[in-house]
Each structure stands twice: as structure tokens, then as C-alpha cells.
């Protein structure tokens, strides 16, 4: 128990020490302070989940910076891929017909509404440059739910557009 409190203190100290410079770095690379902040928060989430090892890493600050690079690269790659997906979707003649989830899934009884809402969410995140948190808060959902909905529409569009 004592050890976990100590870990928490270490995390807080590290966060306060590194946050500003990590955001400065990420802003330079990504060109957007909001996305930069999200990349840094995401990096610290990964750090905390693996705190047992990361805190005892010989160079935790180096770990954070290297992981931030990986997070940003991942972010850029997926956002670019989703951008292409949206562009391809917008070129489909009857987009509204495409945007209907398979109704066999009980969660998606209103498949058309869900798909359109998810598509709007995807556009907010990719075309409008919103962070996952910004898009999530607009919808009154958590970042995790937002991620799942983006994942869902992304997988769906990838599958559907493969048929075109």
C-alpha cells in the first residue's frame, strides 16, 4: 500500500515536471495544441497503466518522450487513414444508403441513425480536427465510448468501401 502511494507521488511529480515540455514538443510536431495535449495525456495513461515497470525504468523521462513519439505517429497515421476513408465515402453516390449498420446487431436496431451519428463523430475528429475528448464531450460520452464509436464506423466503412 505504502509503495502504491509512493508510485502516485512519483507519477504526479513526473507529470508536473514533464507536461509543459511534452506539450511544447507535441505542438511543434502536430501543429495543434489541443491534439498535442491529448497526445500527452494519452502517453501518461500508457505510463500509468504500466507504472510498475515504467516508474522503475532506468530513464522514465526518456520512456515518456519515446512513447509520445509513438503515440503521435500512431495518431497521424490513423487520422490520415480516416481522412482518406471519409474522402472516399463522400465520393460514394448514395452515401445515406451506405450509412446503415447491420441491424442484426441488437445494439444497432436503429442502424441508420447510429451509423450517421458515428459518421458525424468521425468527421468531427478527423476533418474538424477535434480531439477525442472534445468530440466525446459534445456527445456527452466518455473518451473511451468515443473511441469505440470511431472504431466502429471506421471498420464498417473500410468493409463497405472495399465493395466499391
Amino acid at each position: 500500500m505504502g509503495n502504491s502511494i509512493s508510485d502516485e507521488e512519483q507519477i504526479t511529480t513526473l507529470y508536473r515536471d514533464m507536461y509543459g515540455r511534452m506539450v511544447a514538443y507535441a505542438s511543434s510536431v502536430l501543429g495543434d495544441p489541443h491534439l498535442a495535449e491529448e497526445a500527452v495525456q494519452d502517453t501518461f495513461c500508457l505510463f500509468c497503466v504500466k507504472a510498475d515497470t515504467t516508474l522503475r525504468h532506468e530513464n522514465p523521462r526518456g520512456w515518456l518522450m519515446r512513447t509520445l513519439q509513438n503515440v503521435m505517429r500512431n495518431m497521424q497515421r490513423h487520422r490520415a487513414a480516416m481522412n482518406r476513408l471519409i474522402m472516399r465515402s463522400l465520393q460514394v453516390e448514395h452515401l445515406e444508403e451506405l450509412l446503415v449498420y447491420d441491424e442484426e446487431d441488437v445494439d444497432l436496431l436503429y442502424g441508420d441513425l447510429a451509423a450517421r451519428a458515428d459518421f458525424q463523430l468521425l468527421k468531427r475528429v478527423v476533418l474538424d480536427g477535434c480531439t477525442m475528448l472534445e468530440a466525446a464531450e459534445e456527445q456527452g460520452i466518455t473518451v473511451e465510448a468515443c473511441k469505440k464509436r470511431v472504431q466502429r464506423i471506421r471498420a464498417y466503412l473500410k468493409q463497405k468501401l472495399a465493395d466499391f
Partner: peptide, 13 residues
Amino acid sequence: YRPYAHGRSLYDL
């Protein structure tokens, strides 16, 4: 953010 962290990046889709 942290309450929903589970070891995968938000942008690992």
C-alpha cells in the same frame, strides 16, 4: 482520461 486507460492508446484504433 486516466479512468478509461487500459493500456492502449486512444488512437490505436
